[in-house]
């Protein structure tokens, strides 16, 4: 286990809240259908902000919460699959907005879909030591890649960003686990704009997010359980002893299935997907920050963050606060 602490956290969502009733007006669906199958009631969707803007607002909140200044940060990692550019990275543009361009900072993006924030924390933990203070952000503007006429996907997702400040600290310990299993079958994918024009049948248009919900459900429930077991290996802690589990906020049905399967009460799982929907790489970061704001995370507690997503990717972080 590593002696790393989370010095602060913060989140940001765009201004426009879309309810299930709003979606009833644009696609053939109903509040009852969406709630029963997903647990989602509202989601926040950007009208004027992009991923850099949302990520920066979350970062500013985390910096304030940690009681540090931007100048203290020397590592910025952003987990996203909806960055504003192919280059420069979201992390570099957030560095500029934070006014620390002239400081010695390493900044870069990673893409591990909905597991991105777990992967980013894992990477930061390996780099802390050489670096002193990491700003780790999960930020997405998924509304850019959602087909708003597809009732199977448009009801699920939202925009937002969350951030934490990670630094070496004797008081808290962390353990990490990550895994991936390449899947080219299109079960969960958004095709990119980077196919070479010389390729046969090449699609030059940016693809919308496509998901085979049943297959993803199968993967997700196994990925969560496996990740929790693996991350706790060697910690001497059992799942029953965990005070709070913060899972990727994809679907209440996935979380309740895992809870039942593992024999854990639903009260152990932090849920905010009813409000924010699935915000991919941002979801665990937003949930952590919100749980901390609500006073649900206290010193001495044992917490697990667990993610799963396209790739397929999955992973978990164990934190003894």
């Amino acid at each position: 286990m590593k002696n790393i602490e989370i010095a602060g956290s913060g989140y940001a969502v765009p201004g426009r809240c879309i309810t299930n009733h709003d979606l009833e007006k644009t696609v053939d669906t109903s509040d009852e259908w969406i709630t029963a199958r997903t647990g989602i009631s509202t989601r926040y969707v950007s009208e004027t902000e992009n991923t850099v803007s949302l990520g920066c607002r979350a970062a500013v909140n985390a910096i304030a919460n940690a009681g540090i200044t931007p100048a203290d940060i020397d590592l910025i990692i952003v987990a996203t699959m909806t960055g504003d550019n192919l280059t420069p990275s979201t992390a570099c543009l957030i560095q500029e907005k934070l006014g620390i361009n002239s400081r010695h900072v390493m900044a870069f993006d990673i893409n591990a879909a909905c597991s991105g924030f777990i992967y980013a924390m894992h990477i930061a933990s390996a780099m802390l030591g050489q670096y002193r203070c990491a700003l780790v952000i999960g930020a997405e503007t998924l509304s850019k890649i959602i087909d708003w006429t597809d009732r199977n996907t448009c009801v699920l997702f939202g925009d937002g960003a969350g951030a934490v400040i990670m630094r070496p600290g004797e008081k808290s310990h962390m353990a990490f686990y990550a895994d991936s299993a390449g899947d080219s079958s299109g079960t969960l994918q958004a095709t990119g704009p980077l196919l070479h024009p010389a390729l046969e049948n090449c699609q030059r248009t940016f693809g919308y997010l496509h998901m085979d919900g049943k297959e993803v459900f199968r993967f997700a429930v196994k990925a969560i359980e496996d990740s929790i077991h693996h991350v706790l290996e060697g910690t001497g802690v059992t799942p029953e002893e965990i005070d709070l589990i913060i899972p990727h906020q994809a679907n209440i049905r996935i979380i309740s299935y895992v809870a039942r399967k593992m024999g854990l009460p639903m009260e152990k799982f932090f849920i905010n997907l009813d409000t924010f929907g699935n915000t991919s790489a941002a979801s665990i970061a937003i949930a952590f920050a919100q749980a901390q704001q609500q006073g649900l995370i206290r010193p001495g507690m044992k917490i697990v963050l667990v993610g799963f997503g396209a790739g397929f990717t999955n992973g978990a972080v164990y934190i003894r606060m």
């Binding site: 049943k214 459900f217 199968r218 679907n251 049905r253 299935y257």
Partner: peptide, 11 residues
Amino acid sequence: IDSLSAVELSL
């Protein structure tokens, strides 16, 4: 039993 319950059941 809806579509997701059916997946749960099959698991």
